[in-house]
Amino acid sequence: MPDDTPLLTIRGLTVAFAGVPALRGVDLDIHAGESLGLVGESGCGKSVTWLAALGLLPATAAVRGSVTLEGQELLGAPPARLDAVRGGRVAMIFQDPSSALNPVRRVGAQVAEALALHRGMRGAAARAEVLRLFDQVGIPDAARRIDAWPHEMSGGQNQRVMIAIALAGRPEILVADEPTTALDATIQAQILDLLRRLQAETGMALVLISHDLGVVADMCRRVGVMYAGRVVEMAESDALFAHPAHPYTRGLLAALPDLLGPRRRLASIPGAVPEPWNLPPGCPFAPRCAEAIAACSAAEPALAETAPDPGSPSHRAACIRVAAPTPTPHLVLA
């Protein structure tokens, strides 16, 4: 990691909709230039975390905790300050580009709008910058496509436009929420390639939210696994996929079919994700966990360090079975 001071810090973030908890205490650090992946199944809170952090949830959502960008608190910040951050220092792209774009404005004008808002650019200068951004995100024939309508572009091209809009504010952090889920496999490969290249070119940090463990493994240095509104495991990507500590992470990996090698019966996780208004006591994964013991239902485990020695990179898991005081977690796993 380039710097020890995080660019953005999330502490104790909770979100509830009409008293039903959607997020139950999330702590995250994003460092400049890093790539952080967040994985989990529907409803785990991976998207809500970022909508809440950027003040994008409706007023009916009860958001508590703290989100600071270089020491500046974002939660409850006045709209003017948030507007400078959103789309500026922190940009976000979503799953479905065709619904995120305005269907009755030309794509170039939508990029120019972001340039006017965040960099005060107008007229010929803005148009030249739109062309440069279109080139940067790999839209061929940029001079002509600048005046196209969103419906005239393919899903992959529209996602490139969305990325151009995000880049217009020269973000330090790009939050990409399932950016390739709606796209075909070969187009997904193009967009992931583009995000990787842009990150190298601009030095921005990338937060990639995805249900696809493969996408996150491929793109991110550090990965957080979320379940029922909390982060249950957080580690360097290589370590997470080689030695998953939390039984839920292990379950997710075992549930994925392989493309190559001998076929094995998929190890499915029994049951289903608990309803947020009906969470079991203690660890919310305990009812589905093959390794659960009585103590698992007593109290919800905190995210605790499992790394074998102080020198190795942090690997934290929220499981009482792996965060035992004796520092031999990998032996327990084997």
Binding site: A189, D212, G214, D218, M219, L253, L259
Partner: peptide, 14 residues
């Protein structure tokens, strides 16, 4: 094009 957890098999064809 399929991203897979674990080590990459070969260079991706984009």
């Amino acid at each position: 094009a399929i991203p897979t957890p674990g080590p990459r098999r070969a260079a991706r064809i984009v």
